[in-house]
Design a protein around this nucleic acid. Structure first.
Lengths: 361, 361
DNA sequence: CTGAAAGCGCTTACAG
DNA sequence: CTGAAAGCGCTTACAG
């Protein structure tokens, strides 16, 4: 009877040696304790990888856990820990591709753990962003949260998270906080690569439409692009630098203005692909061609970049890997706190067919 | 002293009339019970909208809840309920735009409730999809899950969810289960609109590249498209009906084959925008133009559809609203079980510039 | 290295 | 309509 696979209907334990699963089918810490002949506190120690357990005891408990298929209840642990097993993703990035990739990356890391990803989109324009995040954190007590740009640049929000004792990792194009709280993207270096590419194929009259100045990434990319041009002794006149809103419409509008300049630029670097596709449209509407009349470079390498015609030269950041790394920082918290190395990602330039030497250099 | 905003340092209650917040700053059901002069069970009844509470008592408790800013701990409730306050989204849809819109819709409904959205992407090709979902449900005990296509078409998975006593809503192009478990999309009607549009502007040689046959939506769209053509006495020859994989590459490949037909079709309806953009590319590579030489119609109305050149005529489903409606079904469960009305969404045809009358009808 | 007691903040029977 | 007791499945002090 002891090893019978038939469900045990008795309410009472059938003895220490019995390995039958409990009647309701759900194995709890008490079952594991009983079957291993130890207290539940010791089982708890094993679950939480406490070093204060004898090797033999640990092995016995672990084998019982394996045999019974025991898996600790996250809700119960959350209540006792006063901390849930949820990882929050707080974001206001408007690009679906960015968001989905980041989610995937985080989930790659959470896979096979008992942590879950919960979504918390927000709007920086809202007057109650901070309140909403505070309510979320107070209620859910997440194990940690990951902030993606541009909300990740909100220092007041992060101060608030600290005061709420909520762990966080910021993904941003600049350095913030301690190394284990920050994934850095070298947007400037990516933009510099774009600049070198354009300079090398012979462009001299080059324009840049950056994203909203309120995004640090917009400033980083502008700075990096200038830096890259400088290496070739190039610079941009003021009227060739414009501010867009990281969206399609502003890409169209800013490009239209640039096209009216005389002489007009032979190449335009846009702050993201979304705006770059807008540039495609404006150029086409003006009866001109990409890249024959004007070269275009984007930033992000969204799927759109490879699907438009001609396929777009753009700068790629490994979003998914970044999400995965951010989640790792949160999970390995204890072991990572001392680590001084800062994790950073450098973008790649993906050369496709929206760039070519200018017709009249 | 009673109304002083200063934090009370005493461990003991300072009397029934006192409205001070507890020392640690976190208000619990016990504080509310004490301050209202009722048992915590009664507070619990108020929280859970039980009708078994006197009007006066209810009001008193509610005002204390408001005054103290009390908000029940979801983890504690989850443990006691044996059911968490999480809503799972189970999906395998490859389109980022679809996924993000659906998430937004669900979150629209979850806003201001204590429910959270947790993500559970999956891959129908995986041999352990079912096991993974089972582990997820057993561990997290979600309040309910929302399944989007094509995983929503998996009957075995849904049977499993039922046996796990997990509430679910399926979003699909066909009818499943009870009305409160199913959000229906009339893909066929959307496809029929596309057919009528092409027929009305004079097309006669029309082709269709549908998605994978394993997607019910692919069959629905094909059937609806045929139905629409039939109203105009039109039909498609077998070689003008091809199977794609709902991705860019297959859109290119299938279109390339269609272009070799003699005479070739004057219009192509693709199963989704992603493939339709592939058609754009194949047509362009063949030295032909959209819509002058060939009209193209997509399905989904992704952002890409309005950004490609020429802007694409496509069929639009209100994904966000669908997600929102699905979440509502899950939250209103108790009150909705008896409802017999089935919720469904009919797509719209968005006419842009990828369709025009054929040159030689 | 191990355990008995108390507690996390709520709800489910069970009474009345 | 209301409440005292027990319990959900874990962990945190506190002992030893």
């Amino acid at each position: 009877m002891a090893r019978s696979p038939v469900t045990n209907k008795n309410k009472k334990s059938v003895g220490l040696a019995s390995k039958v699963t409990p009647p309701n089918g759900k194995v709890t810490i008490n079952d594991v304790a009983r079957l291993s002949g130890v207290s539940k506190k010791t089982v708890s120690r094993v679950i939480n990888n406490s070093p204060l357990v004898g090797v033999e005891t640990r092995e016995r408990v672990q084998s019982v856990i394996k045999d019974t298929g025991y898996s600790p209840d996250p809700q119960a642990r959350a209540l006792a820990f006063r901390k849930s097993f949820l990882i929050g993703m707080i974001y206001d990035n408007p690009s679906p591709q960015y968001v989905v990739n980041m989610q995937r990356g985080i989930l790659d890391t959470l896979q096979e753990t008992s942590f879950q990803l919960v979504l918390h989109p927000c709007d920086r324009g809202d007057s109650d962003v901070h309140d909403r995040v505070e309510r979320f954190v107070k209620q859910q007590k997440p194990h940690g949260v990951i902030l993606s740009p541009s909300i990740s640049e909100d220092d007041a929000l992060c101060a608030q998270l600290r005061s709420l004792d909520c762990a966080y990792v910021r993904i941003a194009s600049v350095e913030f906080d301690a190394p284990h709280q920050n994934i850095r993207t070298h947007d400037a270096k990516g933009a510099a690569q774009a600049a070198r590419h354009l300079a090398e194929i012979g462009h001299r009259r080059i324009a840049h439409i950056h994203g909203l100045k309120s995004f640090r990434s917009a400033n980083e990319r502008l700075a990096g692009f200038r830096e890259g041009l400088k290496e070739y002794g190039l610079s941009m006149p003021k009227k060739f630098i414009m501010e867009g809103a990281y969206d399609f419409k502003s890409g169209v509008a800013c490009t239209e203005k640039l096209l009216k300049a005389n002489p007009r630029p032979t190449a335009i670097f846009l702050g993201n692909d979304e705006m770059a596709v807008g540039a495609y449209q404006a150029i086409r509407m003006a009866g001109l061609r990409v890249p024959d009349d004007i070269s275009v470079v984007g930033f992000d390498d969204t799927p759109m970049a490879s699907r438009v015609w001609p396929p777009m030269t753009t700068v790629r950041l490994p979003i998914r890997e970044m999400g995965s790394a951010a989640a790792k920082l949160l999970l390995d918290r204890a072991s990572v706190e001392q680590v001084e190395e800062r994790i950073s990602f450098v973008p790649d330039l993906v050369v496709r067919h929206s760039t070519s030497p200018p017709e009249s250099p």
